[in-house]
Computed example of a mutant assay.
Amino acid sequence: MTVILLAGGRSKRMGEDKALMQWQGKPLLQVLVERFWAAGFSVLVSGGSADWSKRLTNMPVPVIPDLPAHENFGPLAGIEAGILNTRTKLVGVVACDLPFADPKLLSWLSEKIGDADAAIPTFDGEPQPLHAVYARTCLPKLSEQLESDDKSVKEFLKRLKVLYFPEGEWMHVADAKCLTVHLNEPADLAKASEITGEAQLMSVPVLAFVGFSGSGKTKVIEGLTKILTEKGYKVGVIKHHGHIDEEGKDTWRFQQVGAEIVGLVAESGMAIFLPERNLTAKSAIERLLRQRSVDLVLVEGFKSSELPKLVVLHPKGSEAETKRELDELLAQIPDKNTISGVISPVKLTTDLPQFHHSEIDKI
């Protein structure tokens, strides 16, 4: 089966080209191409009119323009052009504004289509024809409809032998968001980003390091980040701090007059200021994960959070001082079950795993 990604729309409501807007650090269309490639499908892109298709020349797969007679006829023209440029008996059709489009659902539909012209999932009783599977047998009826200047997908389906599958039959294969989350307006992109952040938050390992000032938390995280990075892991780091900007500085002034987001750019990189007060640890991690895909997140601070954490004690304390410091620190951690271990200069009487400050590689 070949997958046809429909990218011929003009994205007027979004205000920018949906196919090329950034999603998880890449153009959305490229993310979809790579996702379906990784699932073993041949992939091509339907780019709309010949002129409009030129914007997609950097895509790593063939970009097929509409037939001249059917330029700008919408999704049906893209499906027609795609089928004409494939040899497979089946094609999967996916609109490029579906950021959670799922190869597993297309595979499942391809197994169910039988001798029908199309296998289409439904959600809440509504057909979802732009995340569906079609047989080449539908091509004559498709071309016939376009020749009559009828662009309606709904009318096209009436010409076909279609098998419809309600969500109760396919949701064991794919999550509903693969059909329900469409990127039509900027607000949709924000919602999809939140969903992605929540999903990443559930799947990305997180470990916090808590302790009093001067205990060496930063040095431990610095050393651990270096070790993990050298092993090929992508590491994200968050530091909990009393203040994020200096009063009177330009970035502070922009926030004071109502800027929703402020960026500070220098040769060494870019910092983004989000004027959101009292963020929880999970909310902070979610916002971090919207910016980059990482393998794990290390957090400095957030003693009272529900994050798993290592307690870091001052590296030069005596045995008595270290025990006292541990007791004081434990009193500030509401849920003792979140403590995964202790970094201490001396051996303590505890069942928790213990590490010395010089044993970062053992954490």
Rank of each mutant, 00 (worst) to 15 (best):
93 V>Q: 06
153 V>W: 04
319 E>G: 04
94 V>S: 01
46 S>D: 07
41 F>W: 07
132 A>C: 07
276 E>G: 06
198 E>F: 05
57 T>G: 10
360 I>K: 09
45 V>W: 04
6 L>K: 01
92 G>A: 04
11 S>E: 05
286 E>G: 07
273 F>A: 06
155 E>R: 11
62 P>R: 03
1 M>N: 00
240 H>V: 07
39 A>R: 10
296 L>F: 13
75 P>A: 07
182 H>Q: 08
146 L>F: 14
129 P>K: 10
252 W>S: 11
180 T>N: 14
321 E>R: 09
363 I>G: 01
352 L>T: 15
26 K>Q: 13
70 H>C: 04
83 I>E: 04
136 R>I: 00
11 S>K: 05
311 V>H: 09
362 K>D: 01
149 D>G: 02
183 L>N: 04
144 E>V: 07
102 D>T: 03
141 K>C: 13
254 F>V: 04
112 K>T: 06
79 I>G: 01
27 P>R: 03
251 T>H: 12
290 R>N: 12
343 I>L: 00
87 R>H: 05
146 L>M: 15
42 S>C: 11
353 P>W: 15
228 L>S: 13
46 S>M: 09
84 L>E: 10
272 I>R: 13
248 G>N: 12
201 L>W: 11
234 K>V: 14
225 T>I: 14
338 T>K: 12
219 K>Q: 14
174 A>H: 07
292 R>L: 15
216 G>P: 00
235 V>E: 14
68 P>W: 13
123 F>M: 13
18 K>Q: 09
344 S>T: 15
107 S>M: 14
245 D>S: 13
